Computed example of a mutant assay.
Amino acid sequence: MSQRKIAVVTGAGSGIGRNAALALAKKEFVVVLAGRNEQTLKETAALAGGAQTLAIATNVTQPDSVAQLFEKIKTAFGRVDVVFNNAGTSAPPVPFEELTAEQWNAVVAVNLTGAFLVAQAAYRVMKDQSPQGGRIINNGSISAHVPRPNSAPYTATKHAITGLTKSLSLDGRKYNIACGQIDIGNAATTMVSKISTGAVQANGSLLAEPTMPVDHVGEAIAYMAGLPLETNVQFMTVMATAMPYIGRG
């Protein structure tokens, strides 16, 4: 069994998940890369150079798939020390009255139910392992605080992640399980590429918004992950300094 700390990153095939996985690998974590696309997970693993990684194709919306992920991790490494609960999706930015139930349910399935399933599976491992405990870091987003126009499913699920984070922080205390949340604003990934050319504002206008290098997000997550379990970053907001967050609404 490995003596190095084991970190699990969901949505590790691209964007913030990939960057977080690489940042954790640099901090000498063994990184388990979870996501639906096995090919992009392998690409992340290749970018990690000689770091120890394990790519496991996983659909976070499926309880059996999540259970298999953590069984494979236990078999390979014997424990789980850190989980970055990152997998997420969004609905098309259509007017609220035009949202379909299918669009709503698809976002809830990944962003909320998926986060719950991964957190619960990790929690069970962390509770039972020796030494007991571990850390769960949830990806909240600026939308856990304030919405963009036409973003009800995403915003609602990210507000719910804050409730999940607080509940896990309380319930995990007796098992030495820490839970924190990182809320990220305008990191330069393909998901937010349109923001730098023009994002819809509350008054309906288009505004090109500042972005920040995604590397700063990975560094922040690695900092949270590297703390001893008696210390926790409960909530962290990392964002482009000049983005319209303060004053947005």
Rank of each mutant, 00 (worst) to 15 (best):
Gly185Arg: 08
Val125Cys: 11
Ala20Ile: 10
Thr165Leu: 10
Ala87Lys: 03
Arg173Met: 14
Pro131Val: 04
Val108Ala: 06
Gln120Arg: 14
Met126Tyr: 06
Leu117Trp: 13
Pro149Gln: 08
Val214Ile: 11
Met126Leu: 02
Gly11Val: 01
Ala160Lys: 00
Lys127Trp: 09
His145Phe: 15
Lys26Pro: 09
Ser167His: 12
Arg124Pro: 10
Glu209Thr: 14
Gln234Asp: 15
Asp64Ile: 07
Ser65Tyr: 03
Val107His: 02
Met212Thr: 03
Gln52Lys: 15
Asn186Glu: 15
Ile177Trp: 12
Met243Tyr: 10
Arg248Ala: 15
Val32Met: 12
Gln120His: 11
Ala208Glu: 09
Gly218Arg: 01
Val60His: 01
Leu47Gly: 09
Thr155Ala: 14
Gln52Asn: 14
Met239Arg: 15
Thr197Gln: 13
Gly114Gln: 01
Ala242Met: 14
Tyr123Ile: 00
Phe235Asp: 14
Ile246Val: 14
Ala188Glu: 12
Gly114Ser: 03
Leu164Phe: 06
Thr58His: 05
Ala87Val: 10
Asp64Tyr: 11
Asn37Lys: 08
Gln120Pro: 05
His145Thr: 09
His159Pro: 02
Ala240Gln: 12
Glu38Pro: 13
Lys5Thr: 08
Gly114Trp: 00
Gln181Cys: 10
Ala199Pro: 01
Gly198Glu: 04
Val108Leu: 06
Ala199Arg: 11
Ala152Glu: 07
Gln132His: 10
Gly180Phe: 10
Glu28Tyr: 06
Ala46Ile: 13
Gln3Arg: 15
Thr53Cys: 11
Asn186Tyr: 15
Pro147Cys: 04
Leu22Gly: 08
Ala188Ser: 13
Thr155Gly: 01
Lys42Glu: 11
Thr197Tyr: 12
Gly49Lys: 06
Ala20Pro: 01
Arg36Ser: 04
Leu117Pro: 02
Ala144Val: 09
Gly114Glu: 00
Asn232Gly: 05
Gly204His: 04
Leu170Ser: 14
Leu117Met: 03
Tyr123Gly: 07
Arg148Ala: 15
Ala156Tyr: 00
Thr241Ser: 15
Gly35Val: 04
Lys5Cys: 02
Pro131Ser: 11
Gly180Lys: 07
Ala109Met: 06
Pro153Thr: 00
Pro93Phe: 05
Ala21Arg: 06
Phe116Pro: 06
Ala115Asn: 06
Tyr123Arg: 08
Ala101Pro: 00
Gly133Met: 07
Met224Asp: 04
Asp171His: 11
Val107Trp: 00
Arg248Tyr: 09
Val31Gln: 04
Thr165Pro: 05
Val192Asn: 13
Leu227Ala: 12
Ser193His: 12
Ala106His: 03
Leu112Ala: 02
Glu43Gly: 04
Ile184Ser: 02
Lys158Thr: 05
Ala23Pro: 04
Ala152His: 03
Thr162Ala: 15
Gly49Pro: 11
Ala122Asp: 05
Val214Phe: 03
Val83Gln: 04
Thr241Tyr: 12
Thr157Glu: 00
Ser169Val: 05
Arg18Trp: 01
Arg148Pro: 05
Ala7Tyr: 02
Ala208Trp: 09
Ala34His: 08
Ala87Ser: 12
Ala121Asn: 08
Val80Pro: 01
Leu24Cys: 07
Ala152Asn: 00
Asn139Leu: 12
Ala76Val: 13
